[in-house]
Design a protein around this nucleic acid. Sequence first.
DNA 1: CAACAATTGACAAGAATTTAACAGAAATCT
DNA 2: AGATTTCTGTTAAATTCTTGTCAATTGTTG
Lengths: 212, 212
Amino acid sequence: MDKDISRAVIGRLPRYLRYLGELKDKNVERISSSELSVLMKVTASQIRQDLNNFGGFGQQGYGYNVDYLYSEISKILGLEHQYNFIIIGAGNLGKALGGYLNFEKRGFILKGMFDKDPGLIGTEVRDVKVMPMEDLPSFIRSNDIDIAVLTIPKEGAVLVAKVLVENGIKAIWNFAHVDLDVPEYVQVENVHLSDSLMKLSYNISSYMENNK
Amino acid sequence: MDKDISRAVIGRLPRYLRYLGELKDKNVERISSSELSVLMKVTASQIRQDLNNFGGFGQQGYGYNVDYLYSEISKILGLEHQYNFIIIGAGNLGKALGGYLNFEKRGFILKGMFDKDPGLIGTEVRDVKVMPMEDLPSFIRSNDIDIAVLTIPKEGAVLVAKVLVENGIKAIWNFAHVDLDVPEYVQVENVHLSDSLMKLSYNISSYMENNK
DNA sequence: CAACAATTGACAAGAATTTAACAGAAATCT
DNA sequence: AGATTTCTGTTAAATTCTTGTCAATTGTTG
């Protein structure tokens, strides 16, 4: 299918998908790269270049069909699959992610939640019960879990990641503030919130510097 | 101070800071770019190049002093300032961010939370009360608020952002799934969680494609 | 204290990414 | 139906980012 698409291009696809979804909702049938470029504030050239990494989705003189392009990008992103996922760490962040219904619409199915705090075990998020950590290995194996969401403090994350890998997890969505060391066949996507906040801090202070 | 440091460089600084913090905790006094490059799995050249954007923090034959480098990067990122922030949206995500104590350590002080749901008003997160949206404008003005964290659904986000800007907010940490259109003097950092999840999905499905 | 080893900062070379330009195909207009 | 306009896909140019190299400087060792 695809061989070596750059990370930068992949990173932009979800945003294209979002704008195309909005256009679909407005019943827009077709759109040109230059119209889309105005909406999205990127160059039309970049849009065409990005899309052409995957093949010609448009037509000269016409542009791109919104529905078709939307579904092609969905396919590229693997959103036609269903993924079973679990959340490890049933604190506020874990609950927030577990309760986010839009994930379900995209094919991400919440199968279980885990926590080491006995006080949380048995509580529910959308009919999914929080289970104790001891049950984790067997649960992954017997419920065909693809993705684990790690919403626990960094201290425990490395060890839990090891357990996940040993039990055949395919991917980890990592919110713990640590870099996980896993085999190359396990996909990791990091969300380091404090890094993001620091970037914001940089922008604030750098703006103030340049405008005082 | 700094004129045009690339986004890529800034994006790497928080990760440098994290590793340096760990070294500090281990009482490591000095480190060379090549040692750090092994730890962080990047090239030594990149580390030196990145740091030299801001001046020579190291010394030939010696390397970098961990404490000094840590504090210099902190300064670059603007972490020596204090920032007052509020959270808009007191759902699980808002509560999770409000309860995250490490932000306080970095100088980000939670001053208030807001929600439109009457059922949430009056509840507390770390001694901070959730207030009704009507109080937002006056609160920002009279409490010297720098940053607003937006943890509300996208439908309301655009309108709330407008109110924030009108009342002099400096920066928005945006978790709503929409691009905000604000004046250039307002800094925005987006955290689009579903984009991140889609990238993970791409990696899973692309790995499976290439290894079936 | 001289010789040697370590290591930066600077610069050059090499890659990757982004933007521009344009030929040619399809749609639209008259 | 022919002329004109609109657009893509593609190639080329420009820009940005990353990596490699090495002289110069500092620390260390015998």
